[in-house]
Design a protein around this nucleic acid. Structure first.
Lengths: 345, 345
DNA sequence: CTGTTAGCGCTTTCAT
DNA sequence: ATGAAAGCGCTAACAG
């Protein structure tokens, strides 16, 4: 018995068995239409019999294409980017592409590092989350001629292809909802904003709406990480301040649900004592009691559209450079009209 | 300007600039200890200057190693496997490995298909979820000499390396908790069990505990998919049956929270009218009111341990073949002692 | 439609 | 410690 760790068959083995040349094996596999049906069958039988799997490395070495796409996301927690990636993978899979996935934990340096690693593994194209990145990342991609698509945001400067939605507008929309309910003492509960342009835009949208409404400048409290525990702590800090807000705008659902947890522990009633909003419309928020008012963002659609754009580009077809997908405010029980001043001490 | 899509530099370019041979460039990169410090510096400078990234395909073609590991999971939804994979990636990343991720949506045929695709992309090793797989999968892995680790379960037959926990024991433990509260009319709310040995084991554990307690055989209601909506529907079917159960054991937290949603709509009080349990101890369950009683499973630990096992094997070191990690019942407000018969019509 | 040939970029002997 | 040379498995270019 052969004891080597890898004992793969090669195109030569298949060629020998089928009585053809390796070139014909290659054609049978890649452009079956150009091969005689009889020959094709013999090759396919040989492939099956030998359990032949071609060597992608050799293929990409020769053809400069690997049929792999890299997806680099901030984090897999809370299923948000995981679901976008899942949609991406699904659509790309239909076209014979595999997806190589990596996280950078909101560290744009690490993002660059990881991208380099994936270029080394010959991925043909990239999906990134967010529009702000290390300039060296763009230089690298340009250098190695790798197409890419930025997601979860829209590039206002139109410099790079992207598929996402207007995070600022989303923040603005949900803040408008809260303002329309009469709230004047509004606070913002934010995820860390380093390397997180989505969060920054959302906060900017919140503030713009509040300022436009001539309501006092909102206090911003930052959580140390995007986790329920960190959000809860930040909310507790917020509640310890002088004048408690009547409404809290959180930059995403995790922050918002963390805020809800803090309110429960502080025996504050939602929405009677305080209104809370999230963004992203996750199951986590939707299943709370009361349900979390949030913005439904195009989580899955982004993945599908990004895949389609990349496929188009890789196949040299036309594509829409800048795609802004729609979002929608979803009102649930966590927001209500503000109560009379005297009732909230 | 060069208009080719890929204009990568090669080891030759680096060699020329550094005034050495390509062999030395290779050594400088892979075994820096065997190269003269001066030469090493010249090579490294050249690498940096040219923004040289080696071609992984060529490397794996020659060296039979790609430093990529494939992780094939059922699904990214609900962050469960995503978090395991995240831990896997983190640990593997520290050792210079990248992770290629793929889903199979509980279809073991597709799993086989995807594995073949990843072998084509030369991944060095695999992580799979669950212990039951298509026999052809194992044949393929054997054939191509790829080490693998099965996760999220333990292989009772000891045939394959695995890192997980005893799902049957987990189901048994939480069922014991419910039985100890005096429940006698117990129902099981199950995820689809096709291609899902974790679910099957959990259900088996539930049943064993119930049967041992000489309590009537539990009715099993199946959801069509692992989603909140499908779970809610299944629970509604359960509630329409003749004698409503006083406790429902769900095979995971998503099923359990879906059950909670159905109870809310039916105006059933939890836990006064009905007790509900999950498994996996997710944030989704923990943040419900009342909190979901569940089993805390080693979600992250599985990923880390799987990574460590694979690294050990890839580096030819000793490793523990069969790792069973601990779990723990977490009691929250969704379970309570059964009420007197007459109070539940 | 099919075979021959060359070579992608790298690592690995084997020399020195 | 370094270089020369061979070749991993595949596909593209060219001939027939």
């Amino acid at each position: 018995m052969d004891t080597r760790t890898t004992r793969s068959r090669t195109a030569r083995d298949v060629a020998l068995l089928a009585g053809v040349s390796t070139a014909t094996v290659s054609r049978a596999l890649n452009t079956p239409g150009t091969v005689d049906p009889d020959t094709l069958k013999r090759v396919r039988d040989a492939v099956k019999k030998l359990r032949y799997v071609p060597h992608g490395g050799a293929r990409s070495l020769r053809s400069h294409r690997s049929r792999m796409v890299g997806a680099i996301v901030p984090s897999f927690d809370y299923a948000l980017y995981a679901r976008t990636t899942s949609a991406l993978q699904q659509r790309l899979g239909e076209h014979g592409y595999s997806v190589v996935l990596a996280e950078h934990h909101y560290d744009l340096q690490q993002e660059l590092q990881v991208a380099r690693q994936l270029i080394e593994h010959s991925v043909d194209a990239f999906m990134f989350v967010g529009v702000d990145h290390d300039p060296r990342l763009f230089a690298l991609l340009e250098d190695y001629g790798r197409p890419f698509v930025l997601t979860w945001g829209v590039d206002s400067t139109d410099r790079h292809p992207c598929v996402g939605f207007d995070n600022r507008a989303a923040g603005h929309a949900i803040a408008r909802h809260v303002l329309a309910l009469g709230h004047q003492r509004i606070a913002i509960l934010s995820a860390p904003l380093e390397g997180n342009d989505r969060g920054r835009e959302r906060v900017a949208g919140f503030r713009a709406a509040v300022v436009d409404a001539r309501v006092p400048e909102p206090h911003i409290e930052y959580a140390e990480r995007i986790t329920l525990a960190a959000a809860e702590k930040a909310m507790q800090r917020l509640l310890r301040r002088e004048r408690r807000p009547t409404a809290v705008l959180a930059t995403n659902d995790v922050m918002a649900v963390g805020a809800m947890l803090a309110c429960r522990k502080a025996a504050l009633r939602i929405p009677e004592d305080i209104s809370i909003t999230g963004i992203d419309n996750t199951d986590l928020g939707a299943t709370q009691v009361p349900g979390l008012t949030s913005v439904k963002t195009p989580i899955v659609e982004i993945g599908t559209a990004a895949a389609e754009q990349l496929i188009a580009r890789l196949e040299g077809k036309e594509f829409v450079v800048n795609q802004a997908l729609p979002f929608e405010v979803v009102v649930r029980g966590s927001t209500a009209p503000v109560r009379r001043r005297k009732e909230t001490p």
